[in-house]
Design a binder for these strands. Structure first.
Length: 497
RNA sequence: GGCGCAUUCGUCUAGUGGUUAGGACGCGAGAUUCUCAUUCUCGAAACAGGGGUUCAAUUCCCCUAUGCGCUACCA
């Protein structure tokens, strides 16, 4: 039988980093075993689901490169089927109508209310303690026919336990008396999560459910539904969670944009780098390699090597340099400086485009220049954004001078104000504007002035690139070319700033 | 409150009944260099605590602590 897995986010926000990893693991597993990767949008919570979230999630998945193998399933479209399943169980006596009026949660915190109620029921009320559980079929039908509202609850057996073998956590069981007679259908006949998930997974022919560990206890309830429906449950694999520093839950409200996938896309991350980073959060191949292509991940992935303990996504919102996990940033930089240049170019192009720095010549007669330049500057960049910010001076005459660089590399050596334009004059006579002659000329010039070579080079760097850091200065001269180098060396703009 | 899951350097992790407990990020030092980055070398840094079992436990068992999850007519 062909393996079919699904990623099933609920559209109540953007694509969360934890969800993204769940999608990744589902995708890797499907590809590894040659199965299908499906997508289902769980939009049954009408109050919280938004189309905007759905779009954001779809965008995030598209960015990561996980296209579903079949049409997207919208859970809300299946509500009639869910309802029919619940009614069937009702008919078979595996579920019952609960005429208890819906409790009003009021304005209390929902979590607190749950704990409070659980504590009150402690030892005084069993999970099967519902006056309508054993109501005769005739009585139940009659009250329903009279129009009295009711919820449909699953009739969980008194004795026994559910058990399943989780691919990550091993054998798990739970006693029936720990599980309430869960509601399948609300009194407004709206199907609830556990029912909807089971019905849809059956309908979609899902063979392996790979999802967050927060569903570990739900699984027992879902197995009960599978059993009532007379369907063999799929295989389950629960993933450890991704937490915020301090082991707290990672949430949009508290941690903001850092948990959203689109943040990384917009910050200039490469999807390949981020996938690589995500893959190593909660899974490892058991070797010392850190950089994996998607193909390698697919080849090496296995559910058995997924961890059982939660991982912390490390960052410091008070430190701009640590705005997100160090390792994610490092990995992105590693990809930028080591990936085949040809693969990087399209990303740089689109970054320059959006910064209005792109020129069509880069694709044409200046192609070679563009490649050389990108290759030269990429070694010290962390994100694609750096190409348009730190790298701006290579692509435009309109760039700013970093005051610190001007101070440290120029103003500290006033002689440079006349020397550098003088050097520019010498450049005029240099026909072969390449490394060796350039180096010879600049070092001769430095010697003649009795200056350290570094002083000349650093001054030129500040003038030509606006910043104090960058590639070897001779390479910068070469890449910028004779005309632009001379022009910038003569410019007094930086000196007057 | 109940039930469940988890716990190796700051973080991501490898690993084993007997190991100098390995790697990566980050951090520190050094080398290289016209700056910075890269690269290279070196360094500091961990088995949550307490009981067992055993000749021997980081590894197996129990307890405690801590964290997380579920406990909804949310998903």
């Amino acid at each position: 039988m062909i393996t079919r897995v699904r990623f099933a986010p609920s559209p109540t926000g953007y694509l969360h980093i934890g969800s993204a990893r769940t999608a990744l693991f589902n995708y890797l597993y499907a590809r590894h075993v040659g199965g299908k990767f499906l997508l289902r949008i769980e939009d049954t919570d009408i109050a919280r689901s938004t189309d905007e979230s759905t779009q954001s999630i779809l965008q995030g998945l598209a960015w990561l490169g996980f296209a579903p193998d079949e049409e997207i399933v919208y859970q809300s479209n299946n509500a009639p089927k869910h309802r029919a399943a619940a009614l069937k169980l009702l008919e078979e006596g595996k579920a019952y109508r609960d005429f208890t009026p819906k409790a009003d949660p009021g304005d209390r915190n929902i979590k607190e209310a749950i704990v409070e109620r659980a504590r009150a029921n402690q030892g005084v009320k069993s999970m099967r303690d519902n006056e309508y559980r054993e109501l005769s079929k005739e009585m139940s039908d009659a009250r329903a026919a009279a129009g009295e509202p009711f919820a449909v609850r699953l009739k969980v057996p008194h004795d026994g336990k559910t058990s399943f073998e989780d691919a990550v956590y091993g054998p798990l069981e739970r006693d029936y008396n720990e599980i309430e007679d869960l509601v399948l259908l609300r009194s407004d006949s709206h199907p609830l999560y556990n029912l909807a998930v089971v019905c849809d997974d059956i309908e979609m022919g899902i063979t392996d459910v790979i999802r967050g560990q927060d569903h570990l206890t739900n699984t027992h309830k879902q197995i009960l539904i599978y059993e009532a429906l007379g369907v063999k449950p799929p295989r389950f694999a629960h993933l450890p969670l991704i937490l915020a520093p301090g082991g707290k839950k990672l949430s949009k409200r508290i941690h903001g944009e850092i948990v959203s996938m689109t943040t990384y896309r917009d910050a200039g991350f490469l999807a390949a780098a981020f996938r690589n980073f995500l893959a190593l959060l909660g899974w490892s191949a058991g070797e010392e390699q850190e950089i994996y292509s998607l193909d390698e991940l697919v080849e090496k992935f296995s559910l058995e090597r997924i961890h059982q303990s939660n991982a912390t996504f490390n960052f410091d919102s008070n430190n701009p340099r640590r705005w997100t996990d160090d390792k994610a940033i490092w990995m992105n930089a590693e990809y930028i400086r080591t990936m085949p240049l040809g693969e990087l170019l399209p990303f740089v192009k689109s970054e320059l485009r959006s910064a209005k720095l792109w020129r069509d010549e880069y694709d044409d007669e200046d192609r070679e220049w563009f490649e050389t330049t990108v290759d030269l500057i990429r070694a010290r960049f962390f994100t694609l954004k750096d190409f348009s910010s730190q790298g701006r001076a290579y692509f435009s005459e309109d760039f700013d001078f970093d005051p610190a660089a001007v101070e440290k590399n120029l103003k500290k050596f006033p002689d440079l104000k006349t020397w550098l334009p003088e050097l520019a004059e010498r450049f005029e006579s240099l026909d072969d504007f390449t490394h060796d002659p350039l180096y010879a000329m600049v070092s001769a010039f430095a010697e003649e002035k009795g200056a350290k070579l570094g002083v000349i080079m650093n001054g030129a760097r500040a003038l030509l690139s606006g910043v104090a850091v960058g590639p070897s200065m001779i390479s910068v001269f070469e890449v910028l070319g004779k005309g632009r180098s001379i022009m910038r060396l003569k410019s007094q703009v930086a000196w007057n700033s």
